[in-house]
């Protein structure tokens, strides 16, 4: 860990200016991933700009019903928030499926989205990794591949994004609010994380010095209320996803009025299964239809011996998640399927 300067501005604009002006400065939030990286030698910043105590720690409902979540709301507080629990259960479920109680008390909303892959080679500075050291090669290709991406990977990188929360936010069409030197901009979740392409070193579309200040969830609806998150993992708790599914389903009788599906553990970013959603929307709900829709989304998947299991696993997990939502829908309406 290199010697570094620590500063704690009291104003978000100062923080942004401080990092924007210095290519060797980084924001420090909850620290659960960044401090880890400092110790592993992955990052060697000269300056840490602590934004974790900026007053961006409130959950507020805007006049139009949008739920604004300050970037410094801790994961545990967000999960326990009464509005989130009742109106956006996929968010609470995703948060509670991640990390541990202690880490959720520490990790922030923005930091959660900005956490980096847990690919074992990325975290091991003694092995080549294009994400860590562009041009050095990808050790995961031809190496340990159990957690590797099956969708949207490139020859440069097969890493997966580790966040649970981001998958739920992707499914619910959240918007990330970002403050830069030139003011605020709003980035839909679908444009926030990148696929690796030739530049796996870049995880998101943020510029250096841009600070996530809040995340906004659209006004609650029948769809957001009927949302859920299912995570498949080796250990029963305190483990990253093999695959995960955030889903929301609104049925009109048997007919899928609207549906949202996003996958975790399959790609370099939360994977919104748009083709699967399209295939289901307006169709009669059935388990077979969901499986077929998932297969459609997975048609472009590329797998190796270590991660081929993710295809049936994510397909089944999707069917399982939607079945749970469909069952609850019919409980509510008294309909039988």
């Amino acid at each position: 860990m290199k010697e570094l300067t620590y500063v704690r501005p009291t104003d978000a604009r100062d923080a942004v200016a401080r990092v924007s002006d210095d290519p060797h400065a980084r924001f420090l939030g909850g620290g659960t991933n960044l401090v880890d990286h400092l110790k592993l030698g992955l990052l060697t910043p000269d300056v840490l700009v602590d934004v974790s105590r900026l007053p961006l720690d409130e959950v507020t409902r805007l006049d139009d019903g949008t739920l604004r979540i300050g970037t410094n709301v801790r994961n545990s507080d967000l999960a326990a928030h009464p509005v989130v629990r009742s109106s956006y259960p996929a968010v609470t479920r995703a948060l509670l499926a991640g990390a541990s109680g202690q880490i959720r008390n520490q990790a922030t909303t923005g930091g959660n989205l900005l956490q980096r892959t847990r690919c074992v080679y990325f975290q091991d500075v003694t092995t080549p990794c294009n994400k860590r050291e562009p041009g050095s090669g990808c050790s995961a290709i031809g190496g340990y591949g159990r957690y590797d991406a099956v969708l949207g990977a490139s020859e440069a990188c097969v890493a997966t994004h580790p966040s649970d929360l981001a998958v739920a936010l992707a499914a619910l069409d959240a918007v990330v609010v970002v403050l830069g030197r030139d003011g605020e901009r709003r980035v839909p979740m679908s444009d926030f994380h990148r696929l690796p392409g030739h530049h796996p070193e870049t995880d998101t579309t943020l510029a250096h010095g841009e600070l996530v200040t809040s995340v906004e969830l659209p006004p609650e609806s029948a769809l957001t209320r009927a949302s859920d998150y299912r995570k498949v993992r080796d250990r029963a708790s305190y483990a990253f996803a093999l695959v995960s599914v955030a889903a929301a389903l609104e049925l009109d009788g048997d007919v899928v009025r609207d549906v949202r599906i996003a996958w975790g553990g399959v790609a370099h970013r939360p994977w919104r299964a748009a083709a699967a959603e399209e295939a289901l929307r307006g169709e009669t709900y059935s388990e077979e239809a969901v499986r077929a829709a998932a297969e459609l989304e997975l048609a472009a998947a590329v797998t190796g011996p270590d991660n081929a299991y993710k295809i049936p696993m994510v397909r089944n997990a999707t069917a399982y998640a939607l079945r749970g939502l469909a069952d609850r829908s019919s409980e509510r309406t008294g309909a039988t399927r």
């Binding site: 620590y6 420090l28 909850g30 620290g31 401090v35 602590d50 520490q106």
Partner: peptide, 10 residues
């Protein structure tokens, strides 16, 4: 709270 993933100065 964990103490290993946070800097004392913070």
């Amino acid at each position: 709270h964990l103490t290993c993933l946070t800097l004392a100065v913070a």
